Computed example of a mutant assay.
Amino acid sequence: MSTPGAPTLFVDGAGARVAVIASRWHTEVMDGLIAGAEGALKDANVDDVTLIRAPGSFELPILCQAYARQGFDAVIALGVIIRGDTPHFEYVSASATDGLTRVALDTGVPIGFGLLTCDDEDQALERAGLPDSQEDKGREAVEAALSTWNLLRTLG
């Protein structure tokens, strides 16, 4: 259920402490992203998972930063921003993306990027990991973060 060309990642998250920070907007899409993330965490043998619901996608970076600083091994950011008729989309998308990048670099904690930035609801539903979706970005965000966590642990 991933984009053609996407890597297949084997992920072992046993022993990892993971926070999933999920926006509250666009309930159907978010339910799919959360389910995909939870399924990937279970498949990766992660037992210590905390789910936090953020007011929106703009708030994801500060919440991810707070949980990364609390000793979580990986933080998964899940959200969806759908283009509208104003520049709001560009401002929130850029701010959230730049903020999540900064959190990862400043804390050294892998941040799973599950923030959908879509032109319309249909695009978001195609990426939400629902039964009829073509992609599962919640799962992919977990796999990327845990793969990065494993790689960082090899540094000692």
Rank of each mutant, 00 (worst) to 15 (best):
S2M: 14
S2R: 15
T3E: 15
P7H: 10
T8M: 13
T8H: 15
F10R: 14
F10Y: 14
F10C: 11
D12L: 09
A16N: 01
V18F: 10
A19M: 05
V20N: 04
I21K: 07
S23G: 12
W25N: 06
L33F: 06
L33N: 07
A35Q: 05
A37T: 04
E38I: 11
G39K: 09
A40Y: 00
K42P: 06
V46R: 00
V46C: 01
D47V: 12
D48E: 13
D48Y: 08
R53N: 13
R53G: 10
R53C: 11
P55E: 11
P61V: 09
I62W: 14
C64M: 08
C64N: 08
Q65P: 10
Q70E: 15
G71V: 00
G79H: 00
V80R: 00
I82D: 06
I82T: 02
R83Q: 08
R83Y: 04
D85R: 11
T86L: 00
T86F: 01
P87Q: 03
H88M: 06
S93K: 07
A96G: 07
D98H: 13
G99N: 02
L100F: 05
T101H: 13
A104G: 10
D106Y: 11
T107P: 02
P110D: 03
I111D: 00
G112H: 01
F113H: 11
L116M: 07
Q123T: 11
A124H: 00
A124Q: 00
L125H: 05
L125D: 07
L125C: 08
R127H: 05
R127M: 07
D132L: 15
S133F: 11
K137F: 07
E140F: 13
E140N: 13
A141Q: 02
A141R: 04
E143R: 13
E143L: 14
A145T: 05
T148G: 12
T148L: 15
W149D: 06
N150H: 14
N150Q: 15
T154P: 09
